[in-house]
């Protein structure tokens, strides 16, 4: 699959979309970032993070530090869940 290139997501773009479209738009942008960190678990981690509020997800897309912290949290929850 060719990696898709998306323009940065803005709050106004999100506001114009339906709720399920909003999560999809965020997911399409989050996934490649998470995939770069954890290739094997990127799908699961992205799915977990999409349960977070959109406003916070937008901040994470713009802040690698915030994203990394949430990815780490998600990993720990995932490992506990699978244990």
């Amino acid at each position: 699959r060719e990696p898709a290139v998306y323009e940065p997501l803005s709050a106004s773009m999100l506001a114009a979309a339906l709720p399920h479209e909003q999560k999809q738009m965020i997911g399409e942008r989050l996934y490649p970032l998470i995939s770069a960190l954890h290739t094997q678990l990127a799908g699961k981690i992205t799915g977990m993070l999409l349960e977070i509020d959109n406003s916070e997800l937008l901040l994470m897309l713009e802040s690698p530090e915030s994203l990394n912290a949430k990815v780490q949290e998600a990993l720990e929850v995932l490992q506990e869940h699978q244990a």
Partner: peptide, 22 residues
């Protein structure tokens, strides 16, 4: 376990299954 249904996995270009719960 081997059959873990949570979390719903996201795959690029595929509608996210977790959307059902929103």
């Amino acid at each position: 376990g081997s059959s873990v249904s949570w979390p719903p996995e996201f795959h690029p270009g595929v509608p996210w299954k977790g959307l059902q719960n929103i």
